[in-house]
Amino acid sequence: MLNIIEGEMLMKKSLIALAVAGALTAPMVAQADATLYGSFRVALMSADDQDLDLRDESTRIGIKGDVDLGLEGTKGLFHWEGQLETTDSDAYDAGTGTFAARLAYLGATGDWGTALAGRQYHPHYLWVNIPTDIFNTATSDAGEWAQLGNNQHKRQDNTLAYLTPVMGGFQAALGLVIAGSGDDADDDVDGYNVAAKYSANGLYLAASYGDVDAIDRETWGVAATYDIDALKLVARYEEQENAGVEDEATEVGAIYNFGEGLSAKLRYSNLELNGNDGDQWAAEVEQKLGKGRVYVGYFDYDSDAEALAAKYVDRLAIGYRVDF
C-alpha cells in the first residue's frame, strides 16, 4: 500500500519535472522573435435615414519580428498583416476579404537606417495621416473622411522604402513605387514619396510630398501634434492635384485624457473635392478597458459636405475593439 502511494508520488514528481522542463523549452522553440498580434474591431453605425449597420472596422491579424543576419549592427525584419471580416461573410466568398494582405514586407534595419521592400504604408500615410487620425472609426464616411493620403497613399504594392535613422529628433523617408496602379511600362519608377518628421518635447511635425507620374497625381501634406499635459492638439493639411484638379483636406482636433482610460475628442475638418467643399464636426468618447476599448462617436456634416457624396451623412458610431 505504502509502495503504491510512494510510486504515485514519484510519478507525480516526474510529471511535474516534465512539465517544468516543457515550460522551459517552450520559449526556446518560440525564439524566432516573432510576434503574433491582432486587433478585432466592430462598430454599430446609425446614420440618418439609413438602416442600422454593424460594420467591421478594419479587423486585422499579423506576424512581425526581426531575425539575426549575422551582421554587426544590422538585423533583418519581416511583417505580414492580413485583414479579417467580422461582419460580412460575402467578403470571405469573394476571396478578397479574408487574409487579403494589408501589409507584407521585409527589410533590414541598423544604425544606418531602415530599408523595406514589399507592400507597405507609404511615408505620407505613416507620418502625416496616422499621427493626426484621432478617431477610432476607420471608414471614409466617419473618422477618416478628410484624408487625401488615405485614398492614394495608404498601402502600396511593389514599394521600396528607405528611412534614415533618427537624428536629433529628425527622420526622413523615401518611398519608391516600382509598379503601382496605372503601371506605366516606360518608367522604371511609377511614383515616389519623400517625407520628413521631427519629434521632441511633446511636439511632432511632419511634411510629405508624393508624385505619381503614371497617373498624373501629386500629393503633399503637413501635420503637427502637440501634447500639453492631458491635452493633445492635432492639425493636418493636405493638397492633391489630380490631372489638373486640386483637392484639399484640413483637420484640427483635440484629445483630452481624463485618466483611467477615459478620453474625449473633438474635431473640425474641411474637405474640398473638385471645387466643392464641406465641413464635418465630430466628437468621440473612448474608454479603454484593459486590452479592449469602447467608444461612441458623433459625426455631423454640413449641407455642403452632404452634397459632396451620398455617403457623407450625419451618423453615430458605437464601437468595440479588442487587441492581443
Binding site: Y256, F258, L262, A264, V285
Partner: peptide, 8 residues
C-alpha cells in the same frame, strides 16, 4: 466631459 461620456 465625464458626464458626456456617461450619457454616451
Amino acid at each position: 466631459g465625464k458626464d458626456f461620456a456617461r450619457v454616451s
